[in-house]
């Protein structure tokens, strides 16, 4: 089934993708598969540390993404 995902990018991740938000359509996938998919589009993500949240909850990479979920890619911040 095709999924429409709303993805938010934070911090350094948004700089790599060049945007803070986008909507993508993908087949039913896990978080790991989504990360691979995004890394193909944005190779700079490969070296980045980040967590993935689905509908405002951090999930591990094995979790499946439900249809029309809101995704967030959350890197650590260092500034103070």
């Amino acid at each position: 089934m095709n999924h429409e995902l709303h993805i938010k990018y934070f911090g350094q991740i948004a700089e790599i993708t060049g945007k803070s938000f986008e909507i993508i359509s993908v087949d039913a996938i896990s978080i790991a598969q989504l990360v691979n998919h995004l890394t193909e589009f944005y190779p700079g993500l490969r070296d980045q540390e980040f967590k993935v949240a689905v509908d405002h909850q951090i999930k591990d990479r094995a979790s499946q993404i439900t249809q029309d979920a809101e995704i967030a890619l959350l890197p650590p911040f260092a500034g103070g």
């Binding site: 350094q12 070296d47 980045q48 540390e49 967590k51 951090i58 890197p75 650590p76 911040f77 260092a78 500034g79 103070g80």
Partner: peptide, 19 residues
């Protein structure tokens, strides 16, 4: 629990990225 390990890559701070 959020970020288990120290990142291998340096993460830029205010001195490097502006604020």
């Amino acid at each position: 629990c959020l970020f288990p390990d120290e990142p291998k890559e340096q993460i830029q701070n205010c001195d490097q990225r502006g604020v």
